[in-house]
């Protein structure tokens, strides 16, 4: 992952999203830096309002017009921020596919399922009608639709939430993207269906050798399904690193609190993160210092004054922005962990 640039698919550097308001600019997302390797799964975790969706919209260039994106978002070496619209449109859907939170609303109710899947492959790959249809039906069967031929000709309202999300996944995969982004893709679904969809996403990521970003407020979702983890709080990255390492030895106080709020990490636990006392700060009155200071049991005076910088651990793969980090376990323990994961 830390290898040559060839292995990096997505390279975000100091990405900020700023909302223009009548009272001046308001930072919704600040200084987000991370890299995503090819064939790697990344989990982005944080409470509601942390800026997860904003980050995804920034990456996709889908931010509303009153929000400016700054920084560098390198997708396969091309900077999405500075890129002309037409080039961006050529990459969206082609190189990056996206699954949204609510399948009830993200499929067009008046357009047949088949056409919604064909759309991208006909647009980007210039496939003919028959070819696109064959591809769409194959995709529908891959995502576990029982009768793909029939589904192809139907309108979406005929299907349940879980089935709709499978259809949505098929649309995102229509051009065989190198990166699949799922923003809270299971949050709106019935509890029993959530695990099926997550398993499907994980399986597809492996089969198709693509990268994946799983965005969620639920740590349990990413526990066994991602290689890397990025924890967002108050519009900032507070901790990142290999998932196993962060789970085994969180260093940021917020991550620690999140983890202790999840009763079991190897299964979807459906536990809201709100079990941490207090609420995250509004973008309007985020403190000057650490955004977590108001809720942090270990907060010191300077936490409130200045923003902690990112501290990297020995091999530079695990970083956290905290003045009073959770003490690291003995070096032996971390090394053993790392060995077990690789």
């Amino acid at each position: 992952m830390t290898g040559g640039d060839q292995d990096i698919l997505l390279d975000c550097e100091a990405v900020s999203c700023t909302l223009a308001t009548s009272r001046g600019p308001l930072a919704l997302l600040k200084d987000v830096t991370f890299r995503l390797g090819r064939r790697t799964a990344l989990g982005i975790v944080g409470e509601s309002g942390a800026g997860k969706s904003m980050l995804i919209k920034g990456i996709m260039g889908l931010t509303p017009s009153d929000i400016t994106v700054a920084g560098r978002i390198g997708l396969d070496g091309e900077d999405m921020v500075a890129m002309p619209e037409a080039r961006k449109r050529a990459l969206l859907g082609r190189k990056v596919g996206m699954v949204f939170q609510n399948p009830m609303t993200s499929l067009n109710p008046f357009v047949r399922v088949g056409r919604q899947i064909d759309e991208a492959s006909r647009l980007h790959l210039r496939l003919g009608k028959a070819e696109a249809r064959a591809r769409a039906i194959a995709l529908l069967s891959q995502v576990g639709i029982p009768d793909p031929q029939e589904c192809y000709a139907e309108y979406p309202h005929r299907f349940s939430g879980g089935m709709k999300q499978r259809i949505m996944i098929a649309t995102a995969l229509a051009c065989e993207p190198e990166l699949l982004i799922a923003d809270e893709a299971t949050t709106a679904l019935d509890v029993t269906v959530q695990k099926d969809i997550l398993d499907l996403l994980q399986a597809l990521q492996g089969q198709r050798r693509m990268s994946m970003i799983l965005v969620t407020h639920n740590l349990a979702v990413v526990a066994s399904r991602t290689d890397e983890l990025l924890v967002l709080y108050g519009g900032r990255v507070v901790e990142y690193g290999p998932t196993e390492r962060v789970f085994a030895a969180p260093r940021h106080r917020y991550t620690e609190a999140l983890l202790s709020a999840v009763p079991r990490m190897d299964e979807p636990a459906h536990t809201r993160l709100r079990t941490i006392p207090g609420r995250p700060p509004d973008p309007q009155d985020r403190p000057a210092g650490c955004p977590f200071a108001a809720r942090c049991p270990a907060a010191e005076e300077r936490c409130r004054q200045e923003m902690p910088g990112m501290t990297l651990d020995a091999d530079g793969r695990h970083g956290f922005a905290c003045f009073v980090p959770v003490p690291a376990p003995g070096p032996g323990a971390t090394a053993a962990r790392a060995e077990a994961t690789s």
Binding site: L62, L91, L107, A120, L123
Partner: peptide, 9 residues
């Protein structure tokens, strides 16, 4: 679905 269409380019 309009946003999804944009996300498809």
């Amino acid at each position: 679905y309009v946003l999804a269409a944009r996300a498809m380019g």
